[in-house]
């Protein structure tokens, strides 16, 4: 550096630099302030202070980097969905065949599918007919359309649950908190008929009544069915329906890390190999005698 700037006075360069730096810093502070104000204004519009944020729960699939979903819990969660949630909520993107070799055997899944009636057709006479469900059928919709659903639920539309964990901020933590978070409304909040107070629901007033109580379901594997156990299992089930390839993806992550690091190491060696000539090159300088 000193060689390059030999003819220039050092202080003048530093002076210019200082001015530039101070301008940059002051500009940065102002910019950050404006951005922060914009964010703050935006947040205040969301009225997020009325909503309780769910805590992070220790789900099995979150405890380790390569953990799968707890499939026994997912299976129980299917039972909870079928016996409780399915009364109002559809899952129109999930088919019975997806249960096979994930939570149920093929025979069990066929038996589950056969419990529903599916409108099929037209037959030879051009009429629609009802038949028992097959593996290729999807979970039944409790209402024929959205209007019917709203009419039956005080104007509120029970959302489809296929991807609900992905579709809600907070994911399975939110759904779990919502299912177990029903309380009495605090003073100052009026709850109309057909509405319930839930601090985790944005706005606090939800049209869904508390659905999970202790022992409303009898698990076929004998697990004690406390309300929080039911909520945990159904959240695991909803997580699985939202990301049916979750387990496979975890295995793939492991493989990608192994192959990626091998490729990285080889690239790193290749870079060193290619650059070693330049890096170990000797460059000599001869100072030219300046004539004063």
């Amino acid at each position: 550096m000193s060689l390059k700037f030999g003819r220039l006075s050092k202080s003048s360069i530093l002076g210019v630099k200082t001015v530039i730096y101070s301008k940059l810093i002051s500009g940065g502070i102002i910019g950050c302030g404006i951005a922060g104000l914009a964010v703050a204004l935006n947040e205040s519009v969301k009225a997020s202070d009325l909503t309780l944020h769910p805590p992070k729960y220790p789900w099995y699939h979150r405890q380790g980097f390569f953990n799968t979903l707890d499939m026994a819990s997912v299976r129980r969660g299917y039972q909870v969905y079928k016996q409780i949630c399915a009364a109002c909520h559809s899952m129109r993107f999930v088919a019975y065949r997806e249960l096979v070799n994930n939570t149920h055997t093929e025979e069990e899944a066929k038996a589950e599918a056969a419990e529903i009636l599916v409108t099929d057709g037209p037959d030879e006479t051009g009429k629609m007919f009802q038949r028992p469900g097959k593996l290729s059928d999807r979970f039944p919709n409790p209402y024929p359309n959205e209007e019917a659903a709203r009419a039956a639920n005080n104007g509120a539309y029970p959302p489809d649950l296929s991807y609900i964990v992905l579709a809600r901020h907070g994911g399975e933590d939110y759904v779990f908190s919502l299912l177990t978070g029903y309380t009495d409304a605090p003073a100052g909040i009026t709850v109309d008929d057909g509405q319930y107070f839930n601090p985790y629901f944005p706005g606090g007033l939800i049209s869904m009544a508390q659905a999970l109580y202790n022992d409303v379901v009898v698990y076929d594997d004998g697990t004690p069915a406390s309300a929080s156990q039911l909520a945990k299992d159904v959240c695991n089930f909803l997580k699985w329906t939202g990301e049916p390839n979750y387990n496979e993806r975890m295995l793939r992550v492991m493989r990608i890390i192994i192959y990626g690091s091998a490729i990285f190491l080889a690239c790193w060696y290749g870079k060193r190999h290619a650059w070693s000539v330049l890096k170990s090159r000797k460059i000599m300088f001869r100072e030219k005698k300046t004539v004063d």
């Binding site: 099995y60 380790g64 390569f66 953990n67 799968t68 979903l69 707890d70 499939m71 026994a72 299976r75 070799n101 994930n102 939570t103 387990n247 975890m250 295995l251 492991m254």
Partner: peptide
């Protein structure tokens, strides 16, 4: 992977 997730996958139950 199977060792990490023993008891949790479908093949275990």
């Amino acid at each position: 992977f199977d060792h990490i997730n023993r008891g949790k996958q479908w093949k275990d139950i």
